[in-house]
Write a protein that binds this DNA or RNA. Structure first.
Lengths: 133, 133
DNA sequence: CTAGTTGCAAAGCATTTGCCTGTGG
DNA sequence: CCACAGGCAAATGCTTTGCAACTAG
């Protein structure tokens, strides 16, 4: 069974603190603020422990390194938004989409992933100010 | 400008021969049959050349190494299907989906990607025979 | 106590680069 | 000819592992 250590606490804390899916490096940088001795290898190990326990969930997006979010975030069906500008990833609540894929004969769909790309709130603003110049 | 070499031909040939998005290694293995002296580095360089020329297109799926498909495949809007069993990727023609994401205030969507997961035709069959046993 | 954890450094993998030889045009 | 292309091996970047020291329970 797993022990409760400060390093592991810091990993979960980083995830809840920023409230969006984070990459191992983002977690590392965030958690290092509280625990300077933390090593990146420990973050990776901690991530894998927490994954096995189901306390965090992997968020993979096309062409991006894997990110992770807390089980609370993952409790409801949702998709993700990737900002083309700052490359941060945000949750998109619910799934109002109607899906009717034109599948070839004999294929069956068990689940789906949708990723939206565009500009997040902050980058939207900076985009506007840039255009206004 | 780029030259026409047999190695580069073999890369495109591999893609059209199998008719589905292929990873660099899949391309390498396929092309090596015709051109045993081919090196993996050349496949990577060839892929990047062809990308720049727009002759092939990158297909990234969550948690998967990048794959590539010919520009013909990419000419029409489509999405992808990933078989949970054999891990091959197939094109899904068109996009009959109605998308109405619940975006936070201030976000704007420029494009989207959809990935379907399930069993492809062949693995569907083997799944059925396995269950029948 | 003692098995699970950590930090560090080294090992793995996939992808890219440097360098020198080979070759298409 | 000779600049671009190819093969090989070394370099890179991200993730995992081995190992000895450490610590929660």
């Amino acid at each position: 069974m797993q022990r409760k250590t400060k390093q592991r606490e810091h990993i979960r804390e980083a995830l809840t603190a920023l409230g969006r899916p984070l990459s191992p490096t983002e977690i590392f940088n965030q958690a290092k603020k509280r625990c300077p001795s933390l090593s990146l290898a420990t973050v990776y190990r901690g991530i894998n422990n927490l994954l096995e326990e189901g306390k965090i969930v992997r968020v993979s997006l096309p062409g991006e390194p894997d990110r992770y979010e807390t089980d609370e975030c993952a409790a409801h069906h949702h998709h993700h938004f990737h900002c083309d500008e700052c490359r941060k990833v945000f949750d998109v609540a619910g799934c109002a989409e109607k899906l009717h894929p034109h599948l070839p004969e004999g294929f069956s769909v068990i689940r789906h992933e949708i990723v939206y790309y565009g500009n997040c709130k902050d980058c939207q603003k900076s985009e506007l100010t840039r255009l206004a110049r």
